[in-house]
Write a protein that binds this DNA or RNA. Structure first.
Lengths: 284, 284
DNA sequence: GACCAGAGCTTAATCGATTTAGTGGAGGGC
DNA sequence: GCCCTCCACTAAATCGATTAAGCTCTGGTC
């Protein structure tokens, strides 16, 4: 089914059909004609062909998200949901690439409207920053994490870094933010790891936190008695541990929606700010 | 950079340039000319525009994988890797959709070479079955799981089903397979859940297994003493539990590669069969 | 010397949409 | 009656590739 079929069925030219279906306002077309075209399109089940449109318009109505090897859990899942919802509302679609590299090849084949590269974003060297404020928002969420420990009376706090090199950039950022929070509260500087005297550890993410709980269990230690542990960016797996992992939940859908609007060149709109909440379980 | 630029730079028509770059054998073009064209293309950094190609050829060189809400872990990750590698080797690219529905919209926009719909595959009602033998291969992997328990001397075995409705189809399939294995070994029928007398439980997947370990811990029971638990499709999280989760690892890259070849209409090729191994940890 | 085959190209059609630049006619003003 | 302005459309160009069809030589055969 092509536009030509719709035009033929409704007795107009493809130009007119296109104007009607795209709601072009610079053309004066009586409602009767509009209706005829719309009816024909609906009856024939017409769907514009993406590649033809993309060729004409220069780019397709796709947005590419490079997820590298990141697991699609926690905030990334909600980020994707938000992106997808907002893009869909404007006739676009989100597609995700998993795996190492080859982003350029994918972009050449799909020629997407935009590429959001989480790998570069997480390596802290993305000049584009099409993240809807996600990275910047981390400061507030890190505060949520650290201040929970402070509220619980901890003064000597450690920060557990990830082992994965690809996360080094963003991990350093989070550590800086954590230190800023501690300093603002007049506490001693946050150290990495868990040296003597530390009573609580804030982890880079839930994965790191679970690893810590795991090695603690091997040493015969238990959270929160021996050491309080709080995760970050609830993945759902922390819930299954015993003691269950206390963590910070970030609903990143708002960032996703803002990123979508930025990509489409729309004003920021009425996207509400992104809250983060502490999910209190057993470990801290 | 368009083909026209390359043609102009090498002093031939776009037709000739296209023939050279696509290695069309039905055309006799001397090596000297071929070389000129290739050089020009390389120097100008020419990359064919995906949408123009897609329009002309009817479909793009994309393959769409609908992952729904499935986590990209364990065998799905390796399936994706295999798919991607094999597709890339033939000039195609894999893109993944996450989230509910809207697959059709995505397909309309991208018009991909093929759509592999994991949601329908997992719901056990996909007539296309572009899975490279994945679903069929589950029988052997289920045998790996159940036979491990049998080798350990268990005779009364339970099977833990997932709570998620969307997995009901594939879960029933796995249960049937598990029962067939038990019956082949002359054991009593495998029951769902963990009724009286059951000494070991095979879980639908690692997630279900961890949930079980979790509730066992709450009841003060421990694996494997009180009940042996084996997972399925190693996600990496089971390693962090204490006792660590014994599970079955499936390297699904081979299925991915076969699926890719099927999609591209290539013969099955020398893709080796997919092995599954028991990762013995503490829980069974 | 006419004819043919093949090498080495090119011209132009094609895919399906969008969009610019008109065109023909109706109606209004003077 | 003439001119002008809108309305309601349409013809054709365009995006960038692929590819069928054909064209012009050169060299060889009979």
């Amino acid at each position: 089914m092509t536009l030509k079929d719709v035009a033929a069925a409704s007795g107009v030219s493809t130009a007119t059909a296109s104007f009607v279906l795209n709601k072009v306002t610079s053309q004066t077309i009586p409602e009767a004609t509009r209706e005829r075209v719309r009816r024909a399109a609906a009856e024939l089940g017409y769907v514009p062909q993406g590649s033809a449109r993309a060729l004409r318009e220069g780019r397709s109505r796709l947005v590419l998200l490079n997820a590298g090897r990141l697991p699609v859990t926690g905030s990334l899942r909600s980020f994707i949901d938000g992106l997808d919802t907002e893009l869909a509302a404007h006739g676009h679609t989100l597609l995700v690439r998993h795996g190492d590299g080859a982003v350029q090849q994918a972009a050449d084949i799909a020629d997407p409207r935009a590429v959001i590269d989480l790998v570069r974003l997480y390596a802290d060297d993305d000049p584009g920053r099409l993240d809807g404020g996600w990275i910047d928002g981390l400061a507030a969420h890190t505060a949520t994490q650290i201040e929970y420990l402070i509220d619980r009376g901890h003064t000597r706090i450690g920060f557990a870094m990830p082992a994965d090199d690809r996360l080094a950039g963003i991990a350093r950022l989070r550590l800086r933010q954590a230190r800023a929070v501690a300093s603002a509260h007049g506490l001693p500087e946050i150290t990495t790891g868990e040296p003597e005297g530390v009573t609580a550890v804030a982890a880079f993410d839930d994965d790191v936190a679970l690893r810590l709980l795991s090695t603690m269990a091997d040493r015969g230690q238990q959270a929160p008695t021996d050491l309080a542990v709080i995760g970050f960016d609830d993945t759902g797996y922390g819930e299954l541990w015993r003691p269950a992992l206390t963590t910070v939940r970030i609903d990143a859908a708002g960032y996703g929606r803002r990123a979508a609007r930025a990509v489409l060149g729309l004003p920021d709109g009425a996207v509400p700010p992104v809250p983060s909440t502490v999910v209190v379980r057993g470990s801290a």
